[in-house]
């Protein structure tokens, strides 16, 4: 069966800059993650999928149609781009009413949908405020609401929580999980690992316009935690001479140990060694590497 959204061997360039190079992504129902650093091509990919850009080669199919030419398809797929710009001189409500009309909604329908979403995102109190007076985070909430006005079957989300507070970001995540449960297709672009691993999702890593094969969490953590430093906190300090014998030992400071691991699987080995030597592990943590380093070739 054909996937709901397919980008097949897509190449898109901007003068001399390569946006996408032979990129293939297929997204079925549920959530698919596009993970990559700034400038990797995430936004270009989503814009191609949303019918804003026409690729030089390859093909885009959304529900079987080409979103660049087939205008009706864009009723079924909604793109939330990373600039979330609004008409600044107009109120939030007027902005939403305008877009609602373009999606074929009545004003009452738009109002009902907006009320529901903005309340969930704690932004309904700004509905009569001019968009130009809003903070970046609130603008992003309104833009999320705008993207949902057409009650689409698929969402293309470009870093939708970049400027949101933790609570609102989590509310967006919960909302997306609900949509996924309802059988909708969600393509979620992010550069944050914690977001990429937040959902039960397929993960595609993108770098310099190229897309890796589909990854599972194990593959991803294999990349993330390759030669990484991991901190282990113990309930009580142990003798440093003993600790030095621990596999992958790097350093020790009080009750905190650091290990350097080749892969995430090494963490168990160190932790087991500590437990076998009577230590109580109370926390294991690692510093997330820069996404650029993490996805290095």
């Amino acid at each position: 069966m054909a996937p709901e959204i397919l980008a097949y061997r897509v190449t898109k360039t901007f003068k001399k800059t390569v946006g996408l190079k032979d990129a293939t992504v297929s997204a079925g129902k549920g959530i698919s993650i596009i993970l990559g650093p700034n400038g990797a091509g995430k936004s270009t990919l989503l814009r191609c999928m949303g019918g804003l850009y026409h690729p030089e080669s390859g093909r885009i199919r959304v529900f079987g149609g080409d979103p660049y030419y087939d205008d009706a398809i864009r009723k079924r797929v909604s793109l939330l781009s990373d600039n979330y710009a609004l008409y600044d001189k107009l109120s939030v409500l007027k902005n939403l009413m305008f877009f609602g009309r373009l999606y074929g909604n009545t004003d009452q329908e738009t109002l009902d949908i907006s009320k529901d979403i903005l309340k969930r995102l704690n932004a309904y109190q700004f509905i009569d405020r001019k968009a130009g007076e809003l903070s970046r985070g609130t603008k992003q909430k309104v833009a999320i609401c705008r993207a949902l006005l057409g009650s689409p079957d698929a969402f293309l989300l470009d870093e939708p929580t970049a400027f949101l507070d933790a609570l609102s970001a989590e509310e967006v995540h919960i909302m997306l999980e609900e949509f996924a449960k309802d059988g909708k297709t969600i393509v979620y672009a992010t550069q944050r690992l914690n977001e990429a691993t937040r959902f039960k999702a397929d993960i595609f890593v993108i770098k310099k316009g190229r897309i890796s094969k589909k990854l599972g969490y194990g593959d991803l953590y294999g990349k993330v935690l390759k030669n990484a430093k991991v901190d282990i906190k113990l309930a009580d300090a142990i003798d440093e001479r003993v600790a030095r014998k621990m596999p992958h030992f790097k350093s020790m400071k009080g009750s905190e140990l650091a290990i350097i691991i080749r892969s995430y699987k090494d963490i168990n080995e160190s932790a087991k060694w500590l437990m076998d030597h009577g230590a109580y592990v109370i926390k294991i943590d690692y510093t997330e590497p820069m996404i650029e380093d993490m996805l290095a070739d």
């Binding site: 804003l52 373009l102 833009a143 057409g150």
Partner: peptide, 13 residues
Amino acid sequence: RKTSEALLSTPIT
């Protein structure tokens, strides 16, 4: 104003 992206993402011809 960069509002064109949202505008062109709607089903308008």
